[in-house]
Amino acid sequence: MTNENAITVKNLTKTFGDFTAVDAISFEVGKGEVFGFLGANGAGKTTAMKMLIGISKPTKGEANVAGFDVRTQAEDIKKSIGYMSQRFSLYNDLTIKENIVFFGGIYGLKKSVIKAKSKNLIDELGLHDEADKLVGSLPLGWKQKVSFSVALLHDPKIIFLDEPTGGVDPITRRQFWEMIYREANNGKTIFVTTHYMDEAEYCDRVSIMVAGKIEALDTPKNLKEKYKVDSMNKVFLKLARNIE
């Protein structure tokens, strides 16, 4: 990790009518960091994430993502980040290869680049036999691995992962995290939400959102020491329960 920040957020706020979904949150994510963004359902995680990826305008406050301002340079942000979620990942009616070509095209990559990347990706994941199969016929775990690789096609600086491993079997979940580690090791910044608290422990630092505010932000080790418990699950339960 260097001093350079991949994400800088200051007093970022989003209100819907008189409801404050995100309440003046501030934090920084370093380049190459694996940052866990945790919180209870309805705590405001998704709203905050939407502002960071440039698809929702903040009501107040500022954020800089990959060197761009979320208010004025949203289009530049979209080109500099990768995004995958459990809900929207790939097109089920297209094959793996077709999905790669499609997303490569969306990101404006040249045909020759798409071809080379496509080959790399299929080699790396060992998917030669499946490359021409419809994505819909793949097991969820494979889909998610392909989806992650597709989110990396345009060589983004930051990758946003919204509950990437929900429902995935335990072995594939770990292979997925190995891919995350590999990318972080290559200097990519990873911003990830998860409901698996053991995965929170894989992160360099985690923040925990409660009712629109960031109530805790530190390394998993420091958080466990601070709340005098032995797992992130217990840290989470303590924080979210005490405040209610």
């Binding site: 209870a40 359902n41 509950e163 409901h195 339960l237 979210a240």
Partner: peptide
């Protein structure tokens, strides 16, 4: 799967 996608507090 009553607890899929549900946060740890609600799951408990």
């Amino acid at each position: 799967e009553p607890t899929t996608g549900v946060d740890p507090v609600s799951r408990k």
